[in-house]
């Protein structure tokens, strides 16, 4: 095949490609549109759809979030902020916790980072607001009553700190060492 032929071939190819594409769009013209007519037709979204974020509770009904700052650290848009504090019983929790949904891109990284399964994305995406500041959600707005996607996990059951469970009472723990006896 000499060069001219290949060039001609390329030109024909190009023209063919253009004509083909016109044909494709033309065919589409006669197909039934696939648009879903939101809001009349609402699709049931899969459970793992990433939209409005909630803070869940553990099976005991306590706030799961321990204010570890991991979600805040991983968030690519820096839209989570919080301040940790200590409750009377030593439990670590978020004194305040806010997500600026005007900035959130619903990437779900926070949920992935959360060691306590506290922060979860839900399929509810319909929460537009007229004012940007109304999209700043505080802990009161985020916290839900239930456990969300996982109904069993309780972080403090697996941690070593004496919150909810005393030292040595967490599953898989030995009795606390008695420092005043050398008996084995």
């Amino acid at each position: 095949m000499n060069e001219n032929e290949s060039r001609l071939g390329r030109i024909m190819d190009g023209i063919g490609g253009i004509v083909d594409s016109y044909a494709v769009t033309l065919k589409h013209l006669f197909r039934k549109p696939i648009t879903e007519q939101y809001p009349e037709q609402k699709k049931v979204l899969p459970e793992r759809t990433r939209a409005r974020i909630v803070l869940t509770r553990d099976p005991e009904g306590e706030e799961r979030c321990v204010s570890c700052y991991l979600c805040e650290a991983v968030c690519p848009t820096d839209c989570i902020s919080m301040e940790g504090a200590e409750r009377g019983d030593g439990r670590r929790y978020a004194l305040w916790f806010r997500i600026n949904f005007a900035r959130c891109i619903f990437c779900g990284l926070c949920e992935e980072a959360c060691p306590t399964l506290a922060i979860q994305l839900t399929p509810d995406f319909e929460f537009s607001k007229y004012h940007v500041l109304d999209l700043v959600y505080e802990k009161e707005d985020l916290l839900i009553e239930g456990c969300g996607k996982n109904s069993e996990y309780n972080y403090y059951e697996h941690a070593g700190v004496a919150v909810g469970f005393d030292k040595g009472e967490h599953p898989g723990e030995a009795k606390p060492v008695d420092v005043k006896s050398n008996m084995p």
Partner: peptide, 21 residues
């Protein structure tokens, strides 16, 4: 096997004790 645990102490206003770690 199981994890060893310790009881923690109150060490004053500056230093928090968490011996398990």
């Amino acid at each position: 096997g199981s994890k060893r645990t310790y009881r923690d102490q109150y060490l004053g206003p500056y230093v928090q004790h968490e011996m398990n770690r």
